[in-house]
Design a protein around this nucleic acid. Structure first.
Lengths: 164, 164
DNA sequence: CTGAATGCAAAGCGTTTGCATATTT
DNA sequence: AAATATGCAAACGCTTTGCATTCAG
């Protein structure tokens, strides 16, 4: 089975802290490790629901557990929801998010990572995690919008007149 | 008066889009431009409330306006609320956030900014804004917590046993 | 005078929590 | 048997929205 190492990390983390290895925990682990990109709590919930009874509360509680033991990263890439992704050790990456279509593109920049560490150290911070999100307009949306692009924002303006 | 330039940008942006310059809008503008660091919507609301009647809805609607015209930056630095800050042109900066005391420290890194632009371009993105948040433990909290630091997380674990 | 902005209260939305019940060890 | 985890539903916290009223131009 894949993810054997991570799975053992998870189980030992749970037991070491007096927790129990439940089927719900393992199922959530499998689900999030079978996903390639980012996924939100609700989609995890519905995916698991297809073959097993689980509640949203359990999904949230155990996502927290996975985040705490360092196997999962939780970030706000969109406006509202958190997005989760399993961590690939040694593959720190960041995100480009299209404000039109919400597509998320990953990129890696060792140079930026190094600068971040340096900055944290210079300020006496012990860095634990980071989020670097660049939002803008992706190629696809740029070409589709090029004519219509008059307004300054990607969403409805607060000014009434521009609603017309 | 300070912020004359920004104020004219604001007023002309509003009028250009068929909007109206209301006392509430000007008051919010003044409040956010009188603040030095980051502030959330509720604190702006209460600050303005001290000398003028205003509703939360108006605060939120007009914050959106200020964000749209590029004078204000809105970011999720904490867990729940958005934090707002007025933009200092040409002074792009990012944030270190302490996960214990929530203190926010700003830093500037032209090198990181340049790399970000390069990366966006390489991926065909037209970058509009970015968020770089490094969360960790600040010097002060590190020294206070050095003995107690056993758990992996800054907050209560999802494991029941660790609550004791 | 016209239509945009405000205030109020309610709705929305994702996330968290209290408590009774089920399950792991 | 003891204590943790789950499910349910309600609570939460912040933000957004519908609608009647007020106000800027």
């Amino acid at each position: 089975m894949a993810n054997q190492v991570e799975r053992e990390i998870f189980e030992s983390y749970v037991r070491r802290n007096g927790g129990r290895v439940t089927p719900e925990r393992l199922r959530l682990f499998d689900e999030i490790f079978s996903q390639h990109g980012h996924i939100d709590a609700d989609r995890l919930y519905r995916a698991i629901r297809q073959d097993r009874k689980i509640s949203r509360a359990t999904v949230y509680r155990n996502l927290e557990l996975l985040v705490d033991c360092g196997l999962v990263r939780r970030q706000r890439l969109g406006q509202r929801r958190y997005l989760y992704e399993h961590v690939h050790p040694g593959q720190a990456h960041d995100h480009l998010v299209c404000r039109v279509c919400d597509r998320v593109v990953e990129f890696m920049s060792p140079a930026i990572s190094a600068l971040q560490r340096e900055i944290a150290r210079a300020h006496g911070f012990d860095p634990a995690e980071h989020t670097l999100k660049i939002s803008g307009i992706c190629v696809g949306c740029a070409s589709e919008t090029e004519v219509a692009a008059t307004g300054p924002s990607h969403r409805r303006s607060a000014l009434r007149s521009t609603l017309s």
